[in-house]
Structures are given as structure tokens and as C-alpha cells.
């Protein structure tokens, strides 16, 4: 895994974590979250660098998905959720009453653990977000759909059956369709919650490859509990444990030379 890191030129250009994080695109500040009485996130502070891939790792139930859902305020819809602290997107709080949640979610897209295409055609799946945001002209939609599918690396596979049901695709294709659907609305950040956990290794490899391409345009935040994946595919990694952010750093740094005992135990497979 080291060799992979050596080969990544961008990482060499930004060796210094401090400089990258001077102006993070997203930042959680002392974020705590309760589901009813039980606290799922504890005082989490985390800055997400722009146009990089940041991985969130940690054992099951440590709050990775919860944290991810805070960034696009998807937790709003869960009953009994209470949040303290703040999240800043381009420097301003996303919890401000003036914030248009739907607009925020358009800028911060999400891909779910289980692929969830709508029971509509492939075309309509990708065009969905654009239609919601008021794009109605067929030509424009066709352009967006093609561009998104090309970027999601799916175009060649589906260009002849755009109007067939998306439910007829394979699992890996469905997940890439979900990515295409997410990027069709031109978000700045894409949150990915264990996007490969239900996929076979070949489909997983394809998605990891895709992530490397997407990072040119988008900021990616990926939850995974597959450490090889985090090590292979991400630039920065945050390790969470029991609702706390234990450690955050360059992926190479964190995996080779963790500064916390818990991190080391986890990545060396002593628990998790």
C-alpha cells in the first residue's frame, strides 16, 4: 500500500496538512449528537479538505454514518435527534435558520451504502435531481445525463438502454448510477457511506478508480470500514471510535505511523 501512496503525485505536492486545512470546505466544530438520550457523536471536530478524498474509518457503530448524515442535514428527519456544536460549509454554519436545506443538499450530495436507484428508467434516475431543480428542457437534460454517466464511467455500458428500468442493472452498475445521479446536480461535496460494502471486488475496484477521477472536481468524504480501501483510495483519513474522533491525518501518516494507541490497535486488527 505504500507503493500506491508513493505513486500519487498530488499527495507529494501537499505534504503539509496544515496548509491544506487552512481553508477546509467543510468543518465540524465540537459537534455532538444525541439520538434521544444516547449520545452518538461526542465533540467532534473535523476539517474536510477541498478536492481530496477523506476517509472515515472506525468500528461498526462508532458514528461514522451519523456524522456523514450531519453534513447534509439528513439527520433532521430522524425523530429525537439533538445536535450541539456546528458545521461550517465554506465558513458559514449549515444550521443557520436562514439556510435553505434543499439547496445545501444539492451542494452536498450523497451516495448510500445500499444502492437505491428509483424504480424509473436509467435516464430518469440521473435526470431526477435536475428536474427537481427546475431543469426541464430535454436537450439540456440529455447533456447532463450523458456527462454524468460518462463521469461515473457508466456511459458505455448503458448508452443503449437509457430508457430501461434502472432496477435491471447489476449491483455495481446501480451504485455507479447512484454516483452519476449524485454528480448530475453538480455538487461540491459527495458523501459516500460505505459505497462498496455490498459489491464484489471488481465492482469495488471500479468505484475506487472512479473516485480518483472524481476528486479532480469534487470533494469526497467516504465512510468505510475496510481499511485497505481507506489506505488505497484516500488522501486523508479520520479514525473514529465510540462517537469520538480519535485521530485525523494524511492517510499515509495515519496508517504507517499512528499517533494514538487506539488507532494502531484498530488498524493492526486488534479489535473492530
Amino acid at each position: 500500500m505504500n507503493s500506491k501512496l508513493e505513486r500519487d503525485p498530488q499527495l507529494h505536492n501537499h505534504r503539509d496538512l496544515e496548509t491544506v486545512l487552512e481553508k477546509p470546505i467543510l468543518a465540524a466544530e465540537s459537534l455532538s449528537l444525541w439520538y434521544g438520550a444516547s449520545q452518538a457523536l461526542k465533540e467532534i471536530s473535523l476539517s474536510i479538505p477541498e478536492r481530496r478524498i477523506t476517509a472515515l474509518i472506525g468500528p461498526s457503530g462508532c458514528g461514522k454514518s451519523t456524522l456523514l448524515r450531519c453534513f447534509n442535514r439528513l439527520n433532521d428527519l430522524v425523530d429525537g435527534v439533538r445536535i450541539e456544536g456546528d458545521i461550517r460549509f465554506h465558513g458559514s454554519s449549515i444550521f443557520d435558520p436562514e439556510v435553505d436545506v434543499n439547496g445545501l443538499r444539492r451542494q452536498i450530495g450523497m451516495v448510500f451504502q445500499k444502492s437505491n436507484p428509483f424504480p424509473k428508467s436509467i435516464f430518469e434516475n440521473v435526470a431526477y435531481g435536475c428536474r427537481i431543480h427546475g431543469m426541464n428542457r430535454k436537450r439540456e437534460l440529455e447533456e447532463v445525463v450523458e456527462r454524468s454517466l460518462v463521469r461515473a464511467g457508466l456511459w458505455d455500458e448503458v448508452k443503449d438502454r437509457l430508457h430501461e428500468s434502472a432496477l435491471g442493472m447489476s449491483g455495481g452498475q446501480q451504485q455507479r448510477l447512484c454516483i452519476a445521479r449524485a454528480i448530475a446536480v453538480e455538487p461540491e461535496v459527495i458523501l459516500l457511506d460505505e459505497p462498496c460494502s455490498a459489491l464484489d471486488p471488481i465492482a469495488t475496484a471500479k468505484i475506487e478508480e472512479l473516485m480518483q477521477e472524481l476528486k479532480e472536481r469534487y470533494t469526497l468524504l467516504i465512510v468505510t470500514h475496510n481499511m485497505q480501501q481507506a489506505a488505497r483510495a484516500s488522501d486523508y483519513t479520520a479514525f473514529m471510535y465510540l462517537g469520538e474522533r480519535v485521530e485525523f491525518g494524511e492517510t499515509g501518516q495515519l496508517f504507517v505511523n499512528p499517533s494514538e494507541k487506539q488507532t494502531e490497535d484498530y488498524i493492526s486488527g486488534r479489535f473492530g
Binding site: R105, R106, G109, F112, N116, P119, I132
Partner: peptide, 14 residues
């Protein structure tokens, strides 16, 4: 499925 609604909401739909 709840995740269909979630996908729609995550795309910015009300």
C-alpha cells in the same frame, strides 16, 4: 423503501 426517499432528499428535493 425509506432509502428511496432518502436518495431523493439527498438530491435536494423537498
Amino acid at each position: 423503501p425509506k432509502n428511496l426517499a432518502a436518495a431523493s432528499l439527498a438530491l435536494g428535493a423537498s
